[in-house]
């Protein structure tokens, strides 16, 4: 199983920390970013394969941050994780370049399955 590089963008510290822990436990490399600015800085520093993005964050929200993230990491898959189950939001996020959309709560295995499907879909190599 390939070890992918994840960036977890979520303002909720415990959620972000837990997800980094769980991804690491699954053999992935993971780092957290508390907001869009931190995410931009992390992407300038190091390339990532997958960006897990929260929608509702203080400052720039996930929807607004998406184009910037895609510009800095065009090869990365952005998977949106949010508590909001609105179809309109999902369509908007996909239109702005997100690869997939998951509604919280979801397990780390569901996230990894989604990553596998998304990467498989565009032939980026299986997990």
């Amino acid at each position: 199983m390939t070890s992918l590089r994840f960036l977890v963008v979520d303002d909720e510290e415990r959620f972000r920390g837990n997800l980094v822990k769980l991804l690491t436990a699954k053999g992935m490399q993971a780092e957290g970013a508390a907001d869009a600015e931190q995410a931009f800085a992390a992407l300038r520093r190091e390339a990532r394969d997958v960006i897990l993005l929260d929608v509702r964050m203080p400052g720039m929200d996930g929807v607004a941050a998406l184009p910037g993230l895609k510009a800095l990491a065009p090869e990365a898959d952005v998977i949106v994780l949010t508590g909001h189950a609105s179809v309109d939001d999902a369509a908007e996020l996909l239109a702005r370049g997100a690869s997939e959309y998951l509604v919280k709560p979801c397990t780390v295995d569901e996230i990894l399955d989604t990553v596998a499907v998304v990467r498989d879909r565009r032939g980026a190599g299986r997990l």
Partner: peptide, 12 residues
């Protein structure tokens, strides 16, 4: 929205 976020953490 509000409940799903804490539930996400509970799941983790």
């Amino acid at each position: 929205h509000e409940i799903n976020n804490p539930l996400g953490i509970i799941t983790q």
